[in-house]
Every structure is written in structure tokens, then in C-alpha cells.
Design a protein around this nucleic acid. Structure first.
Length: 197
DNA sequence: AACGGGATGGTT
DNA sequence: ACCATCCCGTTG
């Protein structure tokens, strides 16, 4: 049984969506090859009071999709790599959830080929790593996850609060006080202590 | 046109 | 701890 996440799932406050995405499956078809992983780590970027949110700084060509409808993919380049986000809340509100890590489920050999590494642990741990593994690039920006046959989210188990851990976000240089990183407690594919700053 | 700083990740 | 690498927003 499979059920794709619908618009109403994303049309929610960003923190709730970030938590709700934990345990769900991200499916991507790139170059005719399907890869998938279980979402185990996310971060929320809020429309208000969050100086680390791209949309909070400026509404430009880069961040325009963040102001679009919930369920759109927001892919931005950084350091010659890409990060994958899902837009949340309402149109004209700039916010999104960053997907930071997956547990590989399908297409693992293709992930290895794309990543150029053998280690299962290193395939999809880290936002740019999972993009490379799934074949997510600039062309994914703006795709609607609700009706795309290229990339979407399927519901799996809904995690309890006790099954999650909450921490500060990784790599941000402002808004350190906000606890907006969520991960599956004890999951080995969550980006590790070495990256906790 | 020039400049500087990343929501990174791999290496030393 | 360092830095490769490049895009984007800002400034001049």
C-alpha cells in the first residue's frame, strides 16, 4: 500500500511538517531509475523570526519558489552542490523544510554509482549527499510533489514525539537559539556528532 | 564588474 | 582545522 502525501500535509506550520516528514519515504525517478529513502532528519526554516531562512532575507529569483504553494520542491545550489527542501504553509509565505538525511531503501546500487562511494552510511547522510544519490539537481526546483511523476513523498509510519530528537540546526550562522532540527532517535543515517558543531 | 559569504562535504 | 568550488545577493 502506498499513499502519496497530499497538499494538506504540507499546508501546515513548518515545524509540524518537518516532524511529520520523519519516517516517510522520499521517492525520486531520475534518468529512468527509481531511488528512494526513508526521511530520518529534517530542519524547519520559518517565515517569521528566523534569520537563517533564505526567504527571510530577501525575495529574489532564488527564493521565489519558497513563496509558492505548499508541496513545491525548493532546490538551491550551495558550494557546487544542491540541497532539497519542500515548501510549507500558505502561498506568499516564505518557508520550507530541508531534508538532511535519508535511510536508503531502493536503488542502492544506483546511489553508489552516483555518489562514487560504497559505504551505505555515506550514501544519503547529509543534504547534498542525498541529492546526489537521488539525482536531484536544479531541474527539480519548482516541481509540485503532489502530482509529479519525478519526485514525491509517500506516507509510511508516523513517529511519536518520543521517537524523535530535537536540536539546533546544523551549519547555520544565525538563529542558533532555535531548536528546529528533527531526527529519528537512534537512527544510524542521521548526520553524526562530527557535524554537530 | 567586483566581492564575499554560505542551510556542504571530503581531506589533513 | 582546512579548503575546493560556484552561485547568488549586494555594493559600487
Amino acid at each position: 500500500m502506498t499513499s502519496r502525501a497530499q497538499r494538506d500535509f504540507y499546508q501546515n506550520d513548518t515545524e509540524s511538517v518537518a516532524k511529520g516528514l520523519l519516517g516517510q519515504r522520499l521517492i525520486c525517478v531520475a534518468d529512468g531509475i527509481l531511488t528512494a529513502g526513508r526521511i530520518v532528519e529534517t530542519e524547519a526554516y520559518l517565515p517569521e523570526g528566523d534569520s537563517a531562512c533564505h526567504a527571510a532575507k530577501s525575495r529574489t529569483a532564488r527564493t521565489e519558489v519558497m513563496f509558492g504553494r505548499a508541496g513545491l520542491a525548493y532546490v538551491y545550489p550551495i558550494h557546487a552542490k544542491f540541497c532539497f527542501n519542500i515548501v510549507t504553509e500558505s502561498e506568499e509565505i516564505g518557508c520550507a523544510v530541508l531534508i538532511r538525511a535519508l535511510e536508503p531503501l531502493l536503488g542502492i546500487e544506483e546511489m553508489r554509482a552516483r555518489r562514487g562511494v560504497e559505504s551505505l552510511k555515506r550514501l544519503t547522510t547529509g543534504p547534498a549527499c542525498l541529492c546526489q544519490a537521488l539525482g536531484i539537481d536544479r531541474s527539480v526546483n519548482g516541481i509540485d510533489l503532489i502530482d509529479s511523476d519525478h519526485i514525491w513523498v509517500e506516507h509510511d509510519e508516523r513517529l511519536s514525539e518520543q521517537a524523535m530528537v530535537t536540536t539546533e540546526r546544523i551549519g547555520v550562522t544565525s538563529a542558533h537559539d532555535l531548536l528546529l532540527r528533527f531526527a529519528v532517535a537512534g537512527n544510524g543515517f542521521v548526520s553524526g556528532p562530527a557535524r554537530m558543531r
